[in-house]
Simulated scan of single mutants.
Amino acid sequence: MNKSELIDAIAADAGVTKAAAKLALESFLGNVSKTLKKGGRVSLVGFGSWSVSKRAARDGRNPQTGKTIKIAAKNVVKFKAGADLDGAVN
């Protein structure tokens, strides 16, 4: 499912226009991004939670040349599925 298909599904399920569903989805995504950028955590009970973790700098290897390269430290987003989502998938 891509973004436009998700907007269509939200609009149909909620009985709202596609424009309203698009605004709601963009608001949700924007607020999750802002919270994570500040280092916060977003939890939706039963669905899952997003958090930010720091990945340390490390040495890597270029597979074509075999040379060692430096990989910079960075923040990464992690998602942990909740019990309800995990149960629905399994």
Rank of each mutant, 00 (worst) to 15 (best):
M1H: 07
N2Q: 11
N2I: 11
K3Q: 09
S4Y: 00
S4W: 01
E5W: 02
L6M: 12
L6V: 15
L6E: 06
I7K: 00
I7H: 04
I7Q: 05
D8I: 08
D8M: 05
D8W: 03
D8G: 01
A9R: 13
I10N: 07
A11Q: 09
A12N: 09
A12Y: 07
D13F: 01
D13V: 06
T17H: 01
T17Y: 00
K18F: 00
K18H: 04
A19V: 13
A20Q: 13
A20T: 14
L23H: 13
L23T: 15
A24P: 00
L25S: 12
L25D: 04
L25A: 03
L25P: 02
S27Y: 04
F28A: 14
F28H: 02
F28M: 08
F28N: 03
L29D: 08
L29H: 00
L29T: 13
L29N: 14
N31G: 14
N31W: 04
V32M: 06
V32K: 08
S33R: 13
S33N: 11
S33F: 05
S33I: 02
K34N: 13
K34Q: 10
K34F: 02
K34W: 07
L36S: 05
L36M: 11
K38E: 15
K38A: 14
G39P: 05
G40K: 12
G40N: 03
R41K: 15
V42M: 11
S43T: 15
V45K: 08
G46H: 07
F47A: 03
F47L: 10
S49C: 10
S49F: 11
S49V: 06
S51M: 04
V52D: 08
V52A: 00
S53G: 12
S53V: 14
S53M: 11
K54Q: 13
R55P: 07
A56G: 09
A56S: 14
A57G: 12
R58E: 07
D59F: 11
R61C: 01
R61Q: 08
R61P: 06
N62K: 00
N62E: 10
P63Q: 12
P63D: 11
Q64G: 04
T65S: 14
T65H: 06
K67I: 10
T68H: 07
I69M: 06
K70D: 04
K70W: 10
K70M: 03
A72F: 06
A72W: 04
A73W: 07
K74R: 15
K74V: 02
K74F: 06
V76P: 04
V77C: 14
V77Y: 05
F79S: 08
K80Y: 00
K80T: 10
K80H: 03
A81W: 01
A81M: 07
G82L: 08
A83G: 06
D84A: 14
D84E: 15
L85F: 14
L85E: 08
A88Y: 06
A88I: 11
V89M: 13
V89N: 09
